[in-house]
Amino acid sequence: MEPFFFGEHRDLFGAYHMATGMPRRHGVLIAGPLLNEGIRAQFALRRIAERLSARGYDVLRFDYKGLGNSPVPSSNARVADWAANIVTAADELPAIAGVETSTLIAVRFGACLAADLMRKRSLKRLLLWDPVLDGARWIEDLHACRDNLPIRLRDAVRSNEFMGHEMHEGFAEELKTRCNLSVPADEVAVVLSSGYRDSSDVENLTRHIDKVQYDCQWTSYNSSVIYSADIIETICNRLI
């Protein structure tokens, strides 16, 4: 794995996994989840990247501006920045790997953010893992998750804090307006964990749906790592 910072302001952290198996000359971009979900999913996304690179794919994972290993505070990031970050990363992948076609793996809100990319760049395949398809509903989940904190913590959380991250004041409104997933990719597949609640919406997107018995408990203040060998295997097998 080759780590690097990229983007106009070098505020995006990238982890490039070069193809080590028989090269397919096909790239995979992983657009991960946001906030605490992204921290908890890092281990699983790394495993997915390693497996795919061993099978001949060039894989790029990245941290959005203000999240993960990005060198700026989370409060500096806007939802529009993150959507632009995916486009930047999608352009970075062929530049470093020399691939001509790419697949996008979008996880949770990464699916909403990927809409810009799908309008601007052609994608061969799109694979969604527990996609958030409605920003307003996710905000409700975030508020519910905060309401479930113990009282002494809940009272200390300010209105611009979401899953332990300080965001700018207009964050919730930005999220609400951001989700209109049209799917111009040639092929779409979805992997759902057992805790996923919006299955009926997903069925309108594609009939390629795999369900895995593992509850990721995404929207949570929990700090346990999200890891399921079944989910990783299902995602990797879907791509091949």
Binding site: N69, P73, G164, V225
Partner: peptide, 19 residues
């Protein structure tokens, strides 16, 4: 690392400390 969490730590505690 804090447990199995990556180097950013819980809720990005570690990058915030670095900053």
């Amino acid at each position: 690392n804090a447990g199995m969490l990556p180097n950013v730590g819980p809720f990005r505690l570690h990058p915030e400390l670095s900053l």
